[in-house]
Amino acid sequence: MGVKIEMFRMMLYLSFPVTMFWISNQAEYFEEYIVKRKREIFPPDEESRRKELENFKERMRIQREQRILKKMSEN
């Protein structure tokens, strides 16, 4: 009886990861869950968002430069 149980356990240990790998790599699953979720998190570029981000970067650059100049003038 011990050999049969060991064979069952071996088949279970091997079949579970293989089955999960096979299921997770189905094209329908990938398209339905992964790609849609990625588009929710990272929406396609919009011109208004891009301009807003560029303006924010410019403000941060100016603030950083002002801080550096202020520190240099104090020394």
Results as ranks from 00 to 15, higher is better:
residue 23 I to N: 13
residue 34 I to D: 02
residue 43 P to I: 07
residue 12 L to E: 05
residue 37 R to K: 04
residue 29 Y to T: 05
residue 61 R to H: 02
residue 50 R to I: 13
residue 70 K to E: 12
residue 25 N to M: 04
residue 75 N to F: 12
residue 73 S to W: 12
residue 62 I to D: 00
residue 3 V to G: 14
residue 36 K to Q: 13
residue 56 F to Y: 08
residue 67 R to H: 11
residue 75 N to K: 04
residue 35 V to K: 02
residue 66 Q to H: 05
residue 10 M to T: 14
residue 70 K to Q: 13
residue 19 T to E: 03
residue 47 E to A: 07
residue 60 M to K: 09
residue 7 M to P: 06
residue 31 E to K: 15
residue 18 V to W: 06
residue 47 E to H: 08
residue 22 W to T: 03
residue 21 F to C: 01
residue 71 K to H: 05
residue 49 R to M: 06
residue 5 I to M: 09
residue 54 E to C: 09
residue 69 L to K: 07
residue 39 R to G: 04
residue 71 K to E: 15
residue 11 M to T: 09
residue 75 N to M: 04
residue 57 K to R: 02
residue 62 I to F: 00
residue 72 M to P: 03
residue 49 R to W: 13
residue 52 E to D: 05
residue 18 V to Y: 12
residue 18 V to T: 04
residue 33 Y to M: 06
residue 69 L to W: 07
residue 73 S to R: 10
residue 29 Y to K: 03
residue 48 S to D: 14
residue 44 P to F: 01
residue 12 L to M: 14
residue 47 E to V: 11
residue 65 E to K: 13
residue 13 Y to W: 09
residue 70 K to W: 06
residue 6 E to H: 14
residue 8 F to R: 05
residue 14 L to I: 05
residue 49 R to A: 11
residue 14 L to A: 09
residue 33 Y to E: 15
residue 59 R to C: 03
residue 50 R to H: 09
residue 67 R to I: 10
residue 63 Q to G: 15
residue 59 R to G: 01
residue 30 F to S: 07
residue 63 Q to W: 11
residue 43 P to G: 01
residue 9 R to F: 15
residue 34 I to Y: 03
residue 57 K to C: 03
residue 68 I to P: 00
residue 38 K to V: 11
residue 30 F to M: 03
residue 65 E to P: 00
residue 62 I to Y: 01
residue 3 V to K: 14
residue 6 E to D: 04
residue 28 E to H: 10
residue 25 N to C: 05
residue 67 R to N: 13
residue 20 M to I: 11
residue 3 V to R: 15
residue 39 R to A: 15
residue 42 F to G: 00
residue 14 L to C: 13
residue 52 E to Y: 11
residue 72 M to C: 10
residue 72 M to S: 02
residue 43 P to Q: 02
residue 25 N to T: 10
residue 40 E to L: 12
residue 15 S to V: 00
residue 51 K to L: 10
residue 64 R to Y: 06
residue 8 F to S: 13
residue 49 R to D: 03
residue 26 Q to M: 10
residue 43 P to M: 02
residue 57 K to W: 00
residue 23 I to C: 14
residue 32 E to K: 07
residue 55 N to C: 02
residue 75 N to R: 12
residue 62 I to W: 00
residue 14 L to K: 10
residue 70 K to D: 03
residue 58 E to P: 00
